[in-house]
Design a protein around this nucleic acid. Structure first.
Length: 490
RNA sequence: GCCCCCGUCGUCUAGAGGCCCAGGACGCCACCCUUUCAAGGUGGAGAUCGCGGGUUCGAAUCCCGCCGGGGGCACCA
């Protein structure tokens, strides 16, 4: 049998990391077994529908490279893949359950239901539908129908006995039927609830494995009951644990990014996010951390998926992103990072110059967005922004005259250098440290700020080489001028 | 209130009765390398395996109870 899994979001908001992990696990399972992965849109809630929701979901999947074989955009053998276009199917199935005495029409108003719930709460009883319409006689039914109320269809849950649900990860979980109530299958607006629609579709679309959040576990018995009523074989269910914030609460905006696509904005690589997410609740063995996509597909299976909730370890993701950046070919890194710099500078950058910069910054950034701080000075013209205290550093803080002398001497040597290759530049300048009786780091520090405006940069002489003869000397002279002007040193 | 799930270093995890007075990774600390920052290397601190009872010659691993955390109880998914 072909494995068929799906990602079935409802377009009610931005897809977040938890959603993406569910999608990833489903995708991996299908790919591992050479099966099919499809996308289904569960837009049966008119009130919460968001126009951009479907596109946001697809964009997040695309970004992470979770390709789907069937879906609302590409179609497939079980189309349509959008629930709002399948209303007739749900209606027919609801009718069938009513005809077979597994469901009934309920005319209770929202106000009455609300009253019932409130009364139950006062009595410290679990809030549950009181089955008022379950036992309506034909006459009573005609009477309420005459009033013109549009009914909902409710499932006729067995009053006693128990329902055994199966979860691939947890085994059997048994629920007493008396703790369940008669849930709604079809709403009065003609739309199905999740309880009907998802089961009907998963059966019709021949889903073999349903991966979903563990918040669905309490309603799993309802779904098994629905399958039973239809006399269908249920798919395998796997309820995935939640992803928690650092304070063990639900992961949210307070913990930094929450929406999956925000990670793209912040400079995370899809491969790193996929690797990281895969390790949240799954492991390959006792020591492997970096696992690329092919390897994930080769090894992923449900038997090593955990059921305990995982706290989102943001620092580890950053580290892992750095690993992926360092392993990336220069050309690809340049292509991925350039947009961040271009967005910052609000203009296109010289890609050829950028390619020469990449090797200098590659092991210095962990997020693509850090390229801005690490390399912007390569692309700016005119004066750098730094203050004289930074230029002087600790060593020269109280002796600007000495700094000036060192700067002038270094500039002179660089002007005289034959060739602008970093080895030559270093050979020209390095001896100065000894001559002036300072540590090389102290001397280079002043030059570094003069040339880049920053204290943390790629290696000094390689930076100068890439920056070029003209601009390097301009910046050195500008620093000399500032030192004279602002400290009065001579 | 009722129902369900979960519980190994701060965090992600390995562990399916003796290989574990618990291994790896992130983070943290120290040292090395070093022109800054990184990267890299070496070493270190860090878990009475939630607690209490059993079962067993032997338990993180099996059983029971408790505690703690989380989730669910809609004409939302």
């Amino acid at each position: 049998m072909t494995v068929r899994t799906r990602y079935a979001p409802s377009p009610t908001g931005e897809p977040h990391l938890g959603n993406m992990r569910t999608a990833l696990f489903s995708w991996l399972l299908a790919r591992h077994y050479g099966g099919r992965f499809f996308l289904r849109i569960e837009d049966t809630d008119q009130a919460r529908y968001i126009e951009s929701g479907i596109e946001a979901q697809m964009e997040a999947l695309r970004w992470l490279g979770l390709t789907w074989d069937e879906g609302p955009d590409v179609g497939g053998p079980y189309a349509p893949y959008t629930q709002s276009k399948r209303l007739k199917i749900y209606r027919e199935h609801a009718d069938r359950l009513v005809a077979e005495d597994h469901a009934y029409l309920c005319y209770c108003s929202p106000e009455r239901l609300d009253g019932v719930r409130k009364a139950q709460q006062v009595r410290k009883e679990p809030p549950r539908y009181d089955r008022h319409c379950r036992g309506l006689s034909p006459e009573e039914r005609r009477a309420v129908e005459a009033e013109g109320t549009s009914p909902v269809v409710r499932f006729k849950t067995p009053l006693d006995g128990e329902t055994v649900t199966h979860d691939v990860l947890r085994g059997s979980v048994t629920f007493q039927n008396e703790t369940l109530d008669d849930f709604v299958l079809l709403k009065s607006d003609g739309y199905p609830t999740y309880h009907l629609a998802a089961q009907v579709d998963d059966h019709l679309m021949e889903t073999t494995h349903v991966l979903r959040g563990e918040e669905w576990l309490p309603s799993a018995p309802r779904h098994f009951l629905v399958y039973q009523a239809f006399d269908w074989e249920p798919p395998a269910f796997a309820h995935l644990s939640r992803i928690l914030g650092p304070d063990r609460s639900k992961l949210s905006k307070r913990h930094g990014a929450h929406a999956a696509l925000e990670y793209r904005e912040q400079g995370y690589l899809p491969d790193a996010v996929v690797n990281f997410l895969a390790l949240l609740g799954w492991s390959l063995d006792d020591h492997t951390e970096i696992i690329d996509r092919d390897m994930l597909i080769r090894h992923f299976d449900l038997d090593r998926v955990l059921t305990n909730p995982a706290v989102f370890n943001a620092e580890k993701l950053v580290w892992m992103n750095g690993v992926y950046i360092r392993e990336m070919p220069d050309q690809r890194l340049a292509d991925e990072a350039a947009p961040f710099l271009e967005r910052h500078l609000a203009r296109p950058i010289d890609r050829e110059l950028f390619m020469r910069i990449i090797p200098l910054v590659k092991e210095r950034i962990k997020l693509l967005s850090e390229i801005v701080d690490m390399a912007d000075f390569f692309f700016t013209n005119g004066d750098l922004k730094y203050d004289v205290e930074t230029l002087l550093g600790k060593r020269y803080a109280s002796d600007p005259a000495a700094a000036l002398k060192a700067l002038e001497a270094a500039t002179e040597r660089l002007e005289a250098a034959d060739g602008w290759e970093h080895g030559r530049l270093e050979a020209a300048v390095r001896p100065l440290a000894e001559e002036f009786g300072v540590k090389t780091g102290e001397l280079f520090g002043v030059l570094r700020v003069a040339v880049t405006g920053k204290t943390a940069t790629p290696p000094l002489f390689e930076t100068m080489e890439v920056l070029g003869h003209k601009r390097t000397l301009e910046r050195l002279r500008s620093a000399i001028k500032r030192l004279r002007g602002e400290t009065g040193a001579k």
